[in-house]
C-alpha cells in the first residue's frame, strides 16, 4: 500500500519536473552579448579578466565575487567535522579498545599505497596551487589529498593521522582566510577586498589574494576531510 502511494508521488514529481524543464531549452544562449552585461554571467565573463586577472572565471566567482559565501561554506564544513567528532565522541579510557574497521591488507597493497601516497599529495597540491589557472581549486585539491590519506588509513592498520597536526593546519588555514578578509576591510573598506596587485593573466603569481585564499582553503579541506575519514574509520568494536 505504501509503495503505491510512493509511486504515485514519484510520478507526480517526475511529471512536474519534466514539464518545468521542458520550458528551458537545453544549450540555448541565455547570456547574450557579454559586453552588454544583461545578467550576472555576462558581467562576470566581461570583467573577470581585467579586474581580477584570474584566468578561471569559476574561481573568480567562488573566491572573489562570492568570497563571503565561500567563507560560510568552509564554516559549514568545519561545523560538520566538529559535529561528527561530538556525535562519535569516545572517552579517553576507551582509546585502547578502538580498532580500525579494515581487513589486514597484503604487502602488495601496503607497498603500492606507500609509493602512491606522496604522488597523490603532490597532485592535490598542484591542483590547489593552480586553482586560478586551470580547472580545479582548493576544494578539489583538498579532496584529492584526503583520498591519499584514505588509502594509507585502509592499508595500514596502525597508520595514525595526527590529530594535533590536523587541528593546527585547519585552524591556521581558517585564520589566514579571515585575516585576509579583515585586511581588505581595514585597507579599503570592504571585507575580502582584493587589495594586492592583479599581475599578468595566466601567470602563477596573479590574481592578488585569490591564490592565497585558495591555498588556505585547500589545506583546510584536506585536514577536515582527513579528520572525517579518520573518525569514521576508527570505531570502537562491539564487545
Amino acid at each position: 500500500m505504501r509503495k503505491v502511494f510512493v509511486i504515485i508521488l514519484l510520478i507526480l514529481v517526475g511529471y512536474f519536473l519534466t514539464n518545468t524543464f521542458s520550458l528551458i531549452t537545453f544549450g540555448e544562449n541565455r547570456i547574450g552579448n557579454t559586453s552588454e552585461e544583461k545578467n550576472v554571467a555576462a558581467y562576470y565573463l566581461n570583467n573577470t579578466k581585467e579586474k581580477t586577472s584570474v584566468a578561471n572565471v569559476v574561481t573568480a566567482i567562488v573566491v572573489n565575487y562570492r568570497g563571503f559565501d565561500t567563507l560560510g561554506e568552509v564554516t559549514v564544513l568545519f561545523l560538520a567535522t566538529t559535529g561528527l567528532g561530538s556525535i562519535l565522541f569516545r572517552r579517553k579510557e576507551d582509546e585502547d579498545q578502538i580498532e580500525r574497521i579494515s581487513k589486514p591488507s597484503s604487502s602488495l597493497v601496503q607497498t603500492g599505497s606507500r609509493i602512491l601516497f606522496p604522488l597523490i599529495a603532490l597532485l592535490g597540491i598542484y591542483v590547489f596551487i593552480h586553482g586560478h589557472l586551470t580547472p580545479g581549486g582548493g576544494f578539489q585539491g583538498g579532496a584529492i589529498i584526503a583520498t591519499g590519506f584514505l588509502l594509507m588509513l585502509i592499508s595500514y592498520k596502525n597508520f595514525k593521522a595526527g590529530h594535533t597536526m590536523l587541528i593546527w593546519v585547519e585552524s591556521l588555514a581558517g585564520i589566514t582566510f579571515v585575516t585576509i578578509g579583515l585586511w581588505g576591510l581595514l585597507t579599503s573598506g570592504s571585507f575580502l577586498e582584493n587589495t594586492l596587485p592583479g599581475g599578468e593573466l595566466n601567470n602563477l603569481i596573479s590574481g592578488g589574494i585569490i591564490p592565497i585564499i585558495y591555498i588556505a582553503v585547500g589545506f583546510k579541506v584536506a585536514a577536515e576531510l582527513t579528520g572525517v575519514l579518520d573518525i569514521l574509520l576508527n570505531i570502537k568494536p562491539k564487545k
Binding site: I24, F26, E28, N29, R30, T48, V57, L133, P135, N202
Partner: peptide, 13 residues
C-alpha cells in the same frame, strides 16, 4: 541549465 551548445569552459587559458 548553464550549458550553451558549442561553447567552451569559462577559463581564459
Amino acid at each position: 541549465i548553464g550549458y550553451i551548445k558549442g561553447f567552451t569552459a569559462p577559463i581564459f587559458s
